[in-house]
Amino acid sequence: MEINFILNGKGVKVKTHPLRRLLDVLREDFDLSGVKEGCGEGECGACAVLVDGELALSCITPVGSVEGTSVVTIEGYRETAKYRALEEAFSATGAVQCGFCTPGFIIAAESLLSKTPRPTPNEIREAISGNLCRCTGYSGIVEGIKRASERGEGLW
């Protein structure tokens, strides 16, 4: 089947089986290796992407279901001013250790901030509850998202 969608702002066509995992299509066919496989069953959030601006887990999303949508991965998102605000904040608050989960957290953060530009710490914790981190205990990540929301005035 030929599947058309917008990937990081550009229209793409991919001829493949529609039940293939979006994760594999992104990593293998488009070399977008910032999308990580941590668990393969929707538990850890390392494979998070945005589908039409909504948080989605690419390891349990068949590529056929994103036809006609706009998919954004960390590779697309990192070109934005919002990303830079998040990266600065993550750096300042010590949100990153091994880094394997981090792109997924950035995507989850964008999904939150796009709807709730000034979240409370509890709202942040709920919004990232589908992203697992084994290194940081989450405090640095929660603070990082908070900091980005405060400093990224006007971005969200």
Partner: peptide, 19 residues
């Protein structure tokens, strides 16, 4: 196949393979 959040897990195989 609606959202697929259960089906894709129940029918998953190893990474890189089609469910």
């Amino acid at each position: 196949f609606a959202g697929g959040t259960d089906l894709m897990v129940q029918r998953r195989r190893r990474g890189g393979l089609i469910p």
